[in-house]
Structures are given as structure tokens and as C-alpha cells.
Write a protein that binds this DNA or RNA. Structure first.
Length: 498
DNA sequence: AAAAAAC
């Protein structure tokens, strides 16, 4: 609570609150925008839209937090366009091509997606938008910028390039949006971000949106906002309640077999598999491909062309699995994605929320499976603390089948892989110990009984929350102790790490 | 422990 002390807060509504959803056409929006919204098939607003849009229209700075997949992009782009329409045809000379609104996103694919949305809502207006990001030719971007553009959507690095090349002028920017704001404000992005903000007028409207805001980032963010309003819907740092979350105790050798078995057992047509490293993702993708699954990889060591191809192939359903790093964790809107697997537990608990938020979007159901090894205890505890939910580890019984000998699939030239990951084939184990059903062991980690029923009950902290505001998590969950119990006591024989 | 974002 303390981090919000100075912020006026629009109270979060409870999930069960039976307020009738408000329609977009009750908003004081220009008919051109209402028409575009209607064209998109939207009739009623999501909670974050209903709360944030009127406040953005008032011209206030906003910090907006809402679950993944609940329409944050529309929540800022529609009212922003409305504000800009007040002087749709600026009297400023087009030769000076002043950018009036700037939207920053942490990945190229997300910037592209946000730009698509902005274009969609602005299509009946005169307002022009363009997206700029790295990995592609600068020339077409430069040409578009020089022709004049009112809304600029960008990733930080390429935008700085354009600024230095004097391809755009940002000293007349009236509106700034940080999408995935907590990521944009983290240590990796902050220097570039500050640099960019230094080119902007101090007087402007600033909007920060994300599904996750840590207390530290909330505090930091306030130094970039003027007299802001915090707009939160219920359960910040949560994904949609329609996502079934499972945590499965695994060994590194079991992980691929577990994923394949779950895909089969639950007849999952498509899934994203997240890994923590580019190299690991590249290898994992090749492994699934060898097993006959149609697989595409998405990570930062691929060319932008390959990245685009992978994502498009996945969106079009031409591949079953998208194996990706956290480049795909945030914001990407893939409709009706049934499942997400965390092959590796993410290093940041926030990224867990974003990763599994790729499924269960817009009210759809989804499955999120996280494979947990012994060394992940700390990370799981972090996730437990963030999502304020008790995490139970499921034991998983692999089918006692021998790994089928697979045929090498012919190389698909349309998915040329980067050569740096080519490795000689490892010898195939015909009786992989990893594929045997684990024998009962004395290790409590693997003897956790399979409990399917209890997990979906509202956790105790949720009930307590209704009665009193949460002061600290410690009274509701004991992550460290609980995970310690799950993973067993530390081996007394283990040598101390230096 | 990593990834992302510029050339």
C-alpha cells in the first residue's frame, strides 16, 4: 500500500462484481473512432478500458495495470487518437513532420503489433502512424518519417538511430506511451529510455501500461509521471483466471517427453514452449522438429526476417510449436492459443505472468505448464509470492514407452536455421532412463501425490483479502518454507558453494 | 544464471 500512498487510486473491482459492461458507444468519441471500433467487432469495454479511457480523455497521466489479454492496447490507443483528433489537421508545416504521439515497446514484434492496432483504430482519420524497429532496412522507415507522421511506434534502439539521423523531430510530442512499462523502466532499457525522453517536451501526457508492476517500479515510474492516476483492475500481477496453471516436478532429461505426452493426452493443437536462453531454445526447437513436431523457433539471434517468418507460421497454424525466449513473453496477441509450456522456469517472476498470459486471452481458456527441477526452488518461490497463490508441484508419470526411433526430417529450406547452432547428432539412447516411469523414491520432491481437485479453490489469502487489505504476504503464504518442504531438506553432504 | 534493444 505504501507505494501507492501518494497516488489517487481508482479502486479495483472484484472479479465477481456484476456491473454491466459499458459499451464503447457510450464514450464521447469521434464517430470516426467509434466506426473503427465497431469495424473491429468490439461492442463492450473490458474493465481496464472502461476505467482508463475516460481518464486518458481527461488528459491525465495514467499508470494502468490489468491482466494479460484484457485489451490494454485499445485502452490507450483509442483515447489517445481521440485527444489528437481535436486538431486532426495541424497547422504546422508538414515539412517539419512533428510527431505528436510516441509509443515505445520492448520488442520488435510487439511494436509491430501495437502499430497494427493503432492503424486499425485510426483508419477513418487523417492521422498517420508508422512503426520503426531494428533488424530491418532503415530507408523505408526514414521515408515514412520524412513524409510526416503523427503517431510513432518504436523500439528504443532504432528510434535513437532515427533521432540521431534527424529523421524525426520529437520536440512537439504531446503524448507518450510506454507499453510493457515495467520492462521499459528496467535496468536494461532505462538508459535508452531516458535518452529518448530527454528529447521530448516536459509538458506532455504520459501513459504507462503493463500487466505487472513491482512496488519498486511503481515508485520509479512516478518520477516519469505528472500527477498520475493509478488505474488497476482486480488482481494486478495476475493472468486471466481462465488459465489452468500446473507446475510439474521434472528432471532436465524428462522435460521434452513430458511436454510431448501432455500435448498428446490433452490433444493440444498448438503451444508456445518458453526457454531461458537463445542457445537452449534453438536446440530444443531442433529436438522437437526431429521428433516430427512442426516447430518454429523465435529468439534474438535469428534475423528479423526469420523471426517474422516463425511468428507468422505459428499464427497461421502452419507449425504446432513455437519455441521461444522471452522475446515472445510479453504482449504478443495470438488468438486462441491453447497452451504455454515453461521448459525453463523464468528468471523473473513477472515474466512468468507474461509468458502464460499468451494463453487464455480475451476470456478464452488456456493451460500453462511449468516444468520445475530441483534447482528452480527459489524461482518458484518468487512466482508464488508474486501471484499470491500457493503452488503445488505435480508428479508426472511418463508412459513407459521406449523412445521411438525417428527419421530425420528433411531440412526445410524455408526455415533455414542459423548455422551457429549446428551440432553433430548425439547418439540416440534406445532405452532412455528419462522415459521410464520413475520408481518410488524417498525423495519427497517426486513423491508429491497428484492432487487435481484442491488447486482451483480460491486460496485462503483471497478470502482474507476481502476482509482486510493485504499488508504483507507473510501472513498468507510461506513460500520459502513451503517450497523447502516440497523439495526436501538441503543435502547435508552438499559442499558449500564459494 | 538470460533476454531484449542499434549499426
Amino acid at each position: 500500500m505504501s507505494e501507492n500512498a501518494s497516488l489517487p487510486v481508482v479502486p479495483a473491482t472484484a472479479d465477481a462484481e456484476p456491473a454491466p459492461p459499458a459499451r464503447f458507444d457510450t464514450l464521447p468519441l469521434d464517430p470516426k473512432l467509434l466506426r473503427a471500433v465497431a469495424d473491429s467487432g468490439y461492442l463492450t469495454m473490458t474493465p481496464i478500458q472502461a476505467k482508463a479511457i475516460p481518464i486518458v480523455l481527461e488528459g491525465r497521466d495514467v499508470m494502468g495495470a490489468a491482466q494479460t489479454g484484457t485489451g490494454k492496447t485499445a485502452a490507450f490507443s483509442i483515447p489517445l487518437l481521440q485527444r489528437m483528433l481535436k486538431h486532426e489537421n495541424p497547422s504546422v508545416s508538414p515539412a517539419r513532420h512533428p510527431v505528436r504521439a510516441l509509443v515505445l515497446a520492448p520488442t520488435r514484434e510487439l511494436a509491430d503489433q501495437v502499430a497494427d492496432n493503432v492503424k486499425k483504430y485510426a483508419k477513418h482519420t487523417q492521422l498517420r502512424s508508422v512503426v520503426v524497429f531494428g533488424g530491418v532496412d532503415m530507408k523505408p522507415q526514414t521515408a515514412a518519417l520524412k513524409a510526416g507522421v503523427e503517431v510513432l511506434i518504436a523500439t528504443p534502439g532504432r528510434l535513437l538511430d532515427h533521432i540521431e539521423a534527424k529523421n524525426c523531430v520529437l520536440n512537439q510530442v504531446e503524448y507518450v506511451v510506454l507499453d510493457e512499462a515495467d520492462r521499459m523502466l528496467d535496468i536494461g532499457f532505462l538508459p535508452d529510455l531516458q535518452r529518448i525522453l530527454s528529447f521530448l517536451p516536459k509538458t506532455r501526457q504520459t501513459l504507462l501500461f503493463s500487466a505487472t508492476f513491482s512496488p519498486e517500479i511503481k515508485r520509479l515510474a512516478q518520477s516519469y509521471l505528472q500527477d498520475p492516476i493509478l488505474v488497476e483492475t482486480a488482481r494486478p500481477n495476475q493472468t486471466a483466471s481462465t488459465v489452468e496453471q500446473r507446475f510439474i516436478a521434472a528432471t532436465d532429461d524428462d522435460k521434452r517427453a513430458i511436454i510431448k505426452q501432455i500435448l498428446k493426452e490433452r490433444s493440444i493443437s498448438q503451444a508456445i514452449v518458453f526457454g531461458n536462453s537463445k542457445l537452449g531454445v534453438a536446440r530444443l526447437a531442433r529436438s522437437f522438429e526431429r521428433d516430427g513436431l512442426r516447430t518454429a523457433a523465435l529468439h534474438g539471434d535469428k534475423s528479423q526476417d526469420e523471426r517474422l517468418k516463425s511468428l507468422d507460421a505459428f499464427k497461421r497454424g502452419e507449425v504446432d510449436l513455437l519455441v521461444a525466449t522471452d522475446v515472445a513473453a510479453r504482449g504478443l496477441d495470438i488468438s486462441n492459443l491453447p497452451a504455454v509450456f515453461n521448459f525453463d522456469v523464468p528468471f523473473n517472476a513477472e515474466d512468468y505472468v507474461h509468458r502464460i498470459g499468451r494463453t487464455g486471452r480475451a476470456g478464452a481458456s488456456g493451460l500453462a505448464v511449468t516444468l520445475v527441477t530441483k534447482s528452480d526452488a527459489r524461482l518458484v518461490a518468487d512466482i508464488e509470492k508474486l501471484i499470491k497463490r500457493k503452488i503445488d508441484l505435480d508428479a508426472f508419470e511418463l508412459e513407459n514407452t521406449e523412445r521411438p526411433r525417428f527419421e530425420r526430417r528433411p531440412r526445410d529450406e524455408s526455415f533455414e536455421r542459423s548455422e551457429r547452432y549446428e551440432r553433430p547428432d548425439r547418439p540416440v539412447r534406445t532405452t532412455s532412463p528419462a522415459l521410464r516411469t520413475p520408481a518410488p523414491s524417498a525423495d519427497p520432491f517426486f513423491n508429491k501425490p497428484y492432487e487435481a481437485s484442491a488447486r482451483d479453490e480460491p486460496p485462503a489469502w483471497e478470502k482474507a483479502k476481502a476482509a482486510a487489505p493485504i499488508k504483507g504476504l507473510s501472513s498468507y503464504i510461506k513460500p520459502k518454507r513451503q517450497v523447502a518442504a516440497l523439495f526436501g531438506a538441503k543435502k547435508p553432504t552438499a559442499p558449500a558453494e564459494g
